[in-house]
Design a protein around this nucleic acid. Sequence first.
DNA 1: CTGTATCCAGTAGGATACTG
DNA 2: CAGTATCCTACTGGATACAG
Lengths: 121, 121
Amino acid sequence: MIRGTKTVLDLLAAKWSVDVVYLLANGTRRYSEVFYEVGEISKKTLTQTLRSLERDGVIARRVYAEVPARVEYSLTPLGWSLTAPLMAMYEWATDHGHDLEAARLLHEGEAPAPAQLAAAA
Amino acid sequence: MIRGTKTVLDLLAAKWSVDVVYLLANGTRRYSEVFYEVGEISKKTLTQTLRSLERDGVIARRVYAEVPARVEYSLTPLGWSLTAPLMAMYEWATDHGHDLEAARLLHEGEAPAPAQLAAAA
DNA sequence: CTGTATCCAGTAGGATACTG
DNA sequence: CAGTATCCTACTGGATACAG
């Protein structure tokens, strides 16, 4: 159970993996389009994310022998299958996001989450 | 969509969060029991994980005024609700884990995943 | 356009020792 | 027993410059 669950988590835990998968779920994109549409990502990190997802068979990379270079990325069937757990997460957030907010407000200033430790220090 | 999905991911992405949630899904545990049953975790990290999950309302912490100290952790209703997306992930791994393995074998040595970069170097 | 190379900083998490 | 305190390493990811 834990092992399988972590498999999916490892796949999606990289900071930008989810953004890329969602973006490609809206259709094939070229490198520069992903770069622009994702937003704040650096080229190095984008390439890493893309390579990782490609290696895992989640996205497909197609290179066109043109000048200037042109590379398109798209979701594979395996990538599409990921939308199932992704939707489950989104639904959880929709159903329980408010409870989460409430809990955080309740414990305000008691035990800061990791991301806020730095800000507090 | 992305924001909601990431909310859940942030909750579970910490290295040991899933282990703790699964463990507590099997029943209330004291600190030392979690420490022992989870396995390789350090006390510092366990405490951080526990505090973070508590702050987010996923687990409840109950302190008994005894000597020696005794603290028990359990899942809250919100924590239990997390088992839904967790199950979706597990099911994905069950259904598609083989495809994932196949993809990794196929791309063997081409673009190593982050986790294997170190091993390869 | 699509990357790669290099340098750098922040952070998660481990090891160990100590405390109420 | 249930943590805290301190120190330390590794890895992720950003910035910038360069290349095919």
